[in-house]
Nucleic acid binder design. Structure first.
Lengths: 339, 339
DNA sequence: TTGAAAGCGATACCAC
DNA sequence: GTGGTATCGCTTTCAA
């Protein structure tokens, strides 16, 4: 029922081959301008849209770049990350690729998820953050014709390229700042929300690593849900914990906890220094203003350029291509107490 | 190079037909258990992954459900919306469809964007919020074999189904609350950020509609960028505007503006009532706590069920299927002044 | 119980 | 300049 290149050929009174040449811009010197015009008009008239499946069948690869995201992490993506994805898709389009976001449902095994991607014969797969990707998965993709497999976030599995995002550094930067300010008993918020373990565990590890270099320093993980009740409950038993600093996972948890602490009569930064992460604008609206670790993601344009290059030169040996960096933005919530 | 069903057949010593039956679960009573086992082993051994393009070519439709989002709006999506999309994708998978997010870059004409979607021969297209979709576009999709075209947000173009999200109601609810509180001069924040006009204009219209029913009420649109500088600048000239209330587009803009007003010595809610939207947790952490319009999106499960039904029964006449609703959560920032 | 073969739509080589 | 045609991988009917 939908018009095919055959319909167009019939309508224009030419062969399918001619239609193909004209509509793909390979007609120069092959097809007369008059015929070209006829073909184009016919296509327009019939509302012809080429069939991507037929083309990929022929060419061996859909032009798709699959951006794989684990479904359970998506809601936790802040503006930082959704912004990156949007810009990345736009950049890909400029290179002539079609970026498409494909969820990996939490229940599936890595293998199952990867098979679903491989069925689409994508030109490249970029697995974001918590998307499952082990050596076997990379192998499946490669064997099914995927030119480039890139892991964005965690260290890449063997055979895959990587864009490293060092979550440990985030924790390390926060810890270094707190220790330099004379704090010694550092709480580290570990969100109980699903899917965040991939961020929070390395951040905790980063804090621990730095604290280990500082005699007398102590690190205490504290669980927190993103609700007022959970924060109030934690604030209530705060004094028992004996902590003089807290790295609160990110700015949102930090703001939540800071408010609860204040409501419970704990002084920030007097009794306890609070550090968030992501450097959200909102953190500057609270009083005290919120100290935050600013994370710089690799620019989407660079990542798109990399993916394009890897598609064009599939033989490029796997490597880790760029690291995100983390900087501390010091504000009031972690200032050294006057005393 | 990648293994095909032919490779599997050869490896297992059977015909391609047999392979197809076994791997698609249609082997009951057709193929002996022993042969089935052989086939499955061969597929496993070779790392066989079926070619989605070949299958859709044969069957006439890819199982894809295209979730179309305008690239320039994505960064503005709050957790409300990204959460919806993630859950929606998961629900679709349960129905056996493959939900895929496809960006529509801002520069493209509706026609160009729609052609890109139509090439994939999706079973259904759901155009979120600002995704371009006019009558001609719907026609192109339908003619290329798309069973269902659903517009999520704006009123659907002729021929498309709709899930209505009434942005005017958001403004109306906010305005009604402010007027009931005795406010008469209502500022309405219009973000200057790209891609937000689709939300802000209807919200402004909703405020205007309600204000028109109230003698003496005045509505003043005020532009604001999501930066501290812009907010400070607006706060500086606030008194000249002579407003005693403001509907600040959403909670984030509201928090930004409220802080700037307070810093400029304007009392909230004494001098001016502030109302946001989205009912973010963070709005409850500020002092005064933020009054907000809570928007209830249609549940993802329901939307997925609808899409599945429309795919199965493509003849269903286009209709608007469900409306989001808006409620006001009254908090301190809009309390009636004591006097 | 299994296999042969037609055909989905587009491409590109080769002949005219 | 233009047209025939083999081919990509898979499904499914029909015959054996």
């Amino acid at each position: 029922m939908p018009p095919t290149s055959t319909s167009v050929a019939r309508y224009a009174g030419v062969s399918r081959a001619t239609v193909s040449y004209v509509l793909n811009g390979l007609a120069a010197g092959r097809v007369s301008p008059a015929t070209q015009e006829k073909v184009r008009e016919a296509a327009e008239e019939l509302g012809y849209v080429p069939h991507a499946a037929a083309r990929s069948l022929r060419s061996g690869s859909s032009g798709l770049v699959l951006i794989a995201v684990p479904a359970d992490v998506v809601p936790a993506f802040g503006p930082l990350f959704t912004g990156f994805i949007a810009a990345f898709q736009a950049e890909l389009q400029a290179y002539g690729h079609t970026g498409v976001l494909h969820g990996a449902s939490a229940g599936d095994t890595p293998q199952a998820a990867v098979r679903a991607w491989a069925e689409l014969r994508p030109a490249a797969v970029i697995a974001m953050i918590g998307a499952p990707l082990d050596e076997a998965s990379v192998e499946i993709l490669k064997r099914s014709g995927t030119f480039a497999v890139v892991s964005y976030g965690p260290p890449p599995a063997p055979g895959a390229h990587g864009i490293a995002m060092d979550q440990e550094e985030v924790g390390a930067v926060a810890a270094a700042h707190l220790l330099a300010g004379g704090r010694r008993d550092i709480g580290v918020v570990v969100p109980v929300e699903h899917g965040l373990g991939l961020f929070s565990q390395p951040r905790l590890k980063g804090v621990r690593a730095v604290a280990a270099t500082c005699p007398g320093a102590r690190v205490v993980p504290v669980e927190l849900a993103y609700t007022e009740e959970s924060a109030a409950e934690l604030a209530d038993r705060w004094r028992d914990l004996g902590l003089d600093a807290v790295f609160a996972y990110n700015d949102e948890y930090a703001m939540l906890l800071m408010r609860a602490l204040q409501d419970a009569g704990v002084d920030v930064p007097g009794d306890v220094a609070v550090v968030g992460a992501d450097d959200l604008l909102l953190g500057r609206l609270l009083r005290p203003t919120l100290t935050s670790v600013r994370i710089e993601l690799p620019p989407p344009a660079e990542v798109a350029a990399l993916v394009d290059r890897l598609i064009r030169e599939p033989e490029t040996p796997p490597a880790v291509h760029r690291r995100s960096t983390a900087h501390i933005e010091v504000r009031e919530s972690s200032r050294r107490p006057a005393g």
